[in-house]
Design a protein around this nucleic acid. Structure first.
Lengths: 155, 155
DNA sequence: ATGCCTGCAAAAAATTTGCAAATGC
DNA sequence: GCATTTGCAAATTTTTTGCAGGCAT
């Protein structure tokens, strides 16, 4: 795959498999994955790839702009039993930038883009004498559509 | 101090000292502190308080709404040598909510509030069938005022 | 060939937990 | 006095690093 060579990385099995995993976001896995998630998926696919390698590949891909890393603050967004914003979540870095809306009831992550918010962010930074380089915006909210799997009754 | 009793916590030395530390944000410390920061400040004040206790107190204060926790993604925002968004930063939960602008050159954290952004966030959540409960917005930017201590030359 | 990569194991870093002793009310 | 709280140490969790061997080019 050219993708990898283009960024100065040799085409190796771990890298290929990790890339595939993110690009084939159909086979029963979400778009946002933690290092551990990736590792488990590879294991399930009988790939003998170490967790340390997964971390290294994820870091390389992030630096190359192929993946982007998020830190969600809600415990629900991470695995069940995961406390706080312990783990990083990776996702394919699409052409279109977006922010996240995390469901506090089931942990599902939706994406959104709001041009007005983006513009305002730049304005805020500039007004304070800064040039905006990046930002992270996560909304934590409750589903009002009564469709959350793990939704508490009556909430 | 009533603050503590009001939230169902006994008035103990560790709690009092931690609260004091955040309320007296004058004596050579920043407004945003990590658990380790708090611990070091207490040590410097000859308080014999364990790090585990600091973590417990911070968690209690956060739940009580006295402090709020942030996870900044830039390495500069955390201590020198701190990688990524490893540690949580706590600050006094003011009456006025605000978001953060983190300087990518020196790690300094400025605060801002933008009503338009806040309103838009609610609108976005509602439009997706959610009720916004909380959010985290951090801007990462470069200082254009040439006043950053650790500012790379010519940037 | 040769230098980039990997797996494994150990190290780090941040935070949590178990438990007996200490403390507030 | 008694439940709450603390300090210490050990355990967890997440991520990073050292190193000897392996693989892509």
């Amino acid at each position: 795959m050219q993708n990898l060579k283009n960024i100065g990385l040799k085409t190796t099995t771990p890298r290929l498999k990790v890339l595939e995993l993110f690009q084939n976001q159909n086979a029963g896995h979400e778009r946002h994955l933690s290092a551990e998630d990736v590792y488990r998926h590879l294991m399930a696919d009988n790939q003998d790839i170490g967790l340390a390698t997964v971390y290294r590949v994820l870091a390389q891909f992030e630096q190359a702009g192929i993946l982007s890393r998020n830190h969600f603050a809600s415990s629900e967004a991470n695995g069940p039993g995961a406390g706080g914003a312990g783990r990083a979540m990776y996702e394919l870095a699409d052409a279109q930038h977006h922010d996240h809306l995390v469901c506090l009831d089931c942990g599902k992550v939706e994406e959104f883009f709001d041009a007005a918010i983006e513009a305002k962010q730049h304005a805020v930074a500039k007004s304070k004498g800064f040039e905006l380089a990046d930002h992270a915006l996560s909304l934590y909210a409750h589903c009002t559509k009564k469709v959350c799997p793990s939704r508490p009754v009556g909430v």
